[in-house]
Design a protein around this nucleic acid. Structure first.
Lengths: 158, 158
DNA sequence: CCTAAGAGGTTGAAAGATTAACTAAATGAC
DNA sequence: GTCATTTAGTTAATCTTTCAACCTCTTAGG
């Protein structure tokens, strides 16, 4: 206990780490967003495209996609509607479960992905990955993975 | 160069680190947001309160506050209007520069801060700080600080 | 079977964020 | 001094996110 009321305040070291994480996560997202802007995509769009590109048949069930991208069903539904209007994906019915829907990459979506991915990777490298040594990357991963694990288990619902 | 078209794709290790960072940053924000909800505050509200609490006279110029919280002027202006309506802050004119405004913590804002801060710190500890060893914290900070530095310098405007 | 509960997904309204255009005051170059 | 720029901040319109209500289909229990 650090103080009379029992609160364990953060030490300077802890505070500095916390702020560093906070700042990096916000600044980085802004930067990546800016770098995608010339292609008419948002980070969110891009992440959907990645997930679909990496899936069999370029399609995923809406709920799986929501889980994978850490979004609520509602948000994903709106998001897919927008991307559908932009011609990047389309919805397709699921035969085996007639409540279900697939989000499916269109040709235009796939073409867009192929065109944009190299730029996005370059951006991730320039503003994050390439600023860290191999050891740092490894350490970072080993520190953060349990945290993600913890957060996913502790009331993981978005 | 990893592939014919010259793109340096991410290795498995790099990709894993990148995803870990992404996941932690999103899940963590969601969790903190949830933990503040019972007090009727958002992460954004809280960060404004912290900044004002730590400032002389519990006041800051709008632009300084915008810079400190990494928000656009417009967004901050809306944010402060909401917090003003909630009685947490008020705007006050600046004598020395008559274009300028201060955001000032009200008594209610200060009281709120005193009441909420211990819970917020506990939340940050539970979901982040206390999941990392002292060495990990130090390493994390040393890895991330240069990244934040880089991002701030490279077209830092929000 | 039939029904209650749960899962998959959408929708509309309200809240929050972004963009661009705008006012007013300060600065600085003649 | 005066005019063009820049800085501080707001506003209105638009887009995105969240929240709650809703509909449909599936599943489990009797």
């Amino acid at each position: 206990m650090d103080t009379e009321n029992g609160t364990r305040w953060l030490s300077d070291e802890e505070q500095a780490t916390w702020r560093a994480h906070l700042d990096v996560s916000r600044l980085l997202m802004h930067q990546l967003e800016r770098d995608l802007q010339p292609f008419g995509l948002t980070n969110n769009d891009y992440e959907i495209l990645v997930n679909l590109s990496e899936s069999d048949d370029h399609r995923m069930r809406m709920s799986d996609l929501a889980t994978a991208t850490l979004q609520s069903k509602s948000r994903l539904s709106h998001q897919i509607t927008r991307m559908e209007n932009a011609g990047l994906v389309r919805r397709e019915n699921c035969e085996s479960d007639r409540r279900g829907l697939f989000a499916v990459l269109t040709d235009h979506g796939w073409e867009t992905m192929r065109k944009v991915a190299p730029h996005h990777v370059a951006s991730v490298r320039e503003h994050f990955i390439d600023l860290l040594s191999t050891d740092e990357l490894k350490a970072l991963q080993e520190s953060l993975r349990p945290v993600a694990q913890h957060l996913r288990s502790t009331r993981g619902r978005i």
